[in-house]
Amino acid sequence: MTPLLCACGLSFSYRDRQVLADVSFSLDRGEVLGLVGPNGSGKTTLLRCLDRILDPEGDFRLDGRDLYSMSRPEIARMIAYVPQNSGALGSATVFETVLMGRRPHLRWSVSEEDKQKVSEALSLLGIGDFASRRADRLSGGERQRVLIARALVQDARLILLDEPTSALDMRNQIEVMDLLRRLAEEHRLAVVAAIHDLNLAARYCHRIMMLKEGRVLGQGAPSSLLTGGMMRAVYGIEAVVKDEMGVPYVVPLRPSENDNLVEIV
């Protein structure tokens, strides 16, 4: 079976600054791919390119179809994008905010089916109780769930998330990541998430892709990818990588000797 998502040689430049260079990967249904790498490595840009919010060069197929031949609404029915949790929600209620995810499927009026899907998503994410609260008055964790619920009702096959756990406390972090993994496996969705926390990524992603300065330094299972050498190459730090019940666990120690970070410290 062909993979759901197939990206080949994606490159993107902001004016004359190249942000992504020759990024290639594929992704299957039911798989969670973690994008990791230092700040400015191109994670967010890659997500935006995958949703065609930006227009990269290269070949990009979803379910065998060329993404460049698809219209904006068609893309919206196949790909959902959850931006970084920036608190920029409007003054609509939680129910209405999630309902917005149905926009690619709606004409004007809201059907019973649409409302049913919203209710189900709210229930699945455990935010049913504040369905009628204003979305701009939620806590970070609640807001993140609203954003994920909105992406879910979009009925997309691929969900892209930018730092879904960055504004969350520990419990919310593992709950959200656990949910994403379950959604991927149970609903046969493909998930791509940019994640800073390597240990969270290692624990919940099937595969990890390591980016630095817009290039792919490696991709594969967390246990094969997260090594002391990789930490030195990507982050310029010395780190011990432990094994915690089959999941790699990175303990950062100090900046590497031969890295210019040393001068700053």
């Binding site: 935006r48 949703d51 919010i53 904006r72 609404p73 068609e74 893309i75 919206a76 029915r77 790909i79 959902a80 994008y81 931006p83 920029a88 929600l89 409007g90 609509a92 209405e96 905010t97 917005m100 995810g101 926009r103 690619p104 979009q154």
Partner: peptide, 16 residues
């Protein structure tokens, strides 16, 4: 409604 959530979100919801 979609534009109220930001340009990026609006775009990802299919608004040109």
């Amino acid at each position: 409604n979609a534009l109220a959530e930001g340009d990026e979100v609006a775009k990802s919801l299919g608004v040109p």
